[in-house]
């Protein structure tokens, strides 16, 4: 790509130091003309600015969190309360993220459990099952699913979906209530389960798109070999497509997980929060990091905001780790598969 720098500088004869050759050498090197230097500087500067923004996000969040944590009288990781104003403890701020960790993880796991199989199914449908003419429009529909704003999902989830879930929940309670997980007392089903279902719909597109890309990269030879051996379509998929795509599916799921962990407004709209941990996922209550920030923000004073920022920092670190791991898996795969060289 960078042709000029690839050519070795022609060794100029020592006695022949005409100004033109040095001129040519300098221009051939690329970034020595003023225009080039400015442009390279600008574009490299933007890249550095991007890194600086990421660093600044971490730094500022950490700084404000340290302000909040210094005065916290509860244990930040194990306290089951969110009371930075200290209303119930004579002005001493008490807050902890235990409930939020629980709610965030539970709702994201529910979302993944529902979304991953469906997304793999859709990805396979697009890559291997759908008639050719259908595949593109279907991929487009999935993209539209991704384009719907989360607040609209929230509105739809709260007003349309949630009332429709009471029947399903009482059925689950009847047959699986004994597990303790699926106990349901009745009432508006604005619970972690509902949140999980909604999140599943919201992360479906990203998991589908990434897995579909991977499925389409499966070497044709593998599939044709399986077909030649008399495999049915499912056997082709099980023996050549899925093994090839496994790491892709894993990283796609982790990207989806990243989305689910940080989803704010849809959760805040659907969940009726309560700061407690319950085994039952069908009853109201619980909370997630992002939802807690959105719901508590408007009535928080400045110290309360710092406390929320502290919980945001934890969310930031978690999503950073999840996304980073997912990207690393994808990058490693690219290196050895050679499929998209």
């Amino acid at each position: 790509m960078d042709i000029p720098t690839d050519t070795p500088p022609t060794p100029a004869p020592a006695d022949d130091a005409r100004p033109t050759t040095t001129e040519q050498k300098r221009t051939a090197r690329g970034a020595t003309r003023p225009g080039d230097r400015i442009f390279l500087g600008l574009s490299r500067g933007s890249g550095i600015a991007l890194l600086a923004i990421m660093a600044a996000v971490a730094a500022f969040l950490a700084y404000r969190s340290s302000v909040a944590l210094a005065d916290n009288t509860g244990n930040f990781f194990t306290t089951f309360e969110w009371d930075p104003a200290g209303i119930s403890s004579d002005g001493k701020p008490v807050f902890g993220i235990a409930v939020l960790v629980f709610g965030t993880i539970v709702s994201s796991i529910i979302a993944l459990v529902i979304a991953v199989p469906v997304a793999i199914g859709i990805a396979l449908f697009i890559s291997h099952y759908a008639p050719r003419q259908l595949a593109t429009p279907i991929a487009f529909v999935i993209d539209l699913l991704a384009a719907v704003p989360s607040i609209v999902y929230g509105l739809w989830g709260a007003i349309v979906v949630a009332p429709n879930l009471t029947g399903l929940y009482s059925w689950l309670d009847d047959y699986f209530g004994w597990t303790g997980i699926f106990e349901y007392e009745g009432g508006a089903p604005r619970s972690l389960m509902t949140v999980g279902i909604l999140l599943a719909i919201m992360i479906l597109p990203i998991i589908t798109n990434v897995s579909r890309e991977v499925f389409l990269q499966v070497p044709k030879m593998h599939e044709e070999a399986a077909i030649a051996l008399g495999a049915t379509r499912w056997e082709v998929i099980r023996m050549s497509v899925l093994p090839f795509g496994r790491s892709g599916i894993i990283s796609a799921s982790m990207l989806g997980l990243g989305r689910a962990l940080g989803e704010t407004i849809a959760v805040a709209t659907v969940l009726s929060p309560a700061f407690l941990i319950k085994a039952s996922v069908l009853d109201y209550g619980g909370g997630t990091f992002a939802q807690n920030i959105a719901s508590k923000f408007s009535e928080a004073d400045e110290y309360g905001r710092d406390a929320l920022i502290a919980s945001g920092l934890v969310l930031f670190v978690i999503t950073l780790l999840v996304n980073g791991a997912a990207r690393m898996i994808i990058a490693r795969r690219k290196e050895y598969s050679g499929a998209n060289a």
Binding site: L50, I53, V57, I293, I309, T319, V322
Partner: peptide, 21 residues
């Protein structure tokens, strides 16, 4: 790498960052 990771920043965290500084 960080552009990729940045794609996954929750929107609320971006909001908190601007809020803090």
């Amino acid at each position: 790498f960080f552009v990729d990771v940045m794609t996954g920043i929750p929107s609320i965290v971006a909001g908190l960052f601007v809020l803090s500084f």
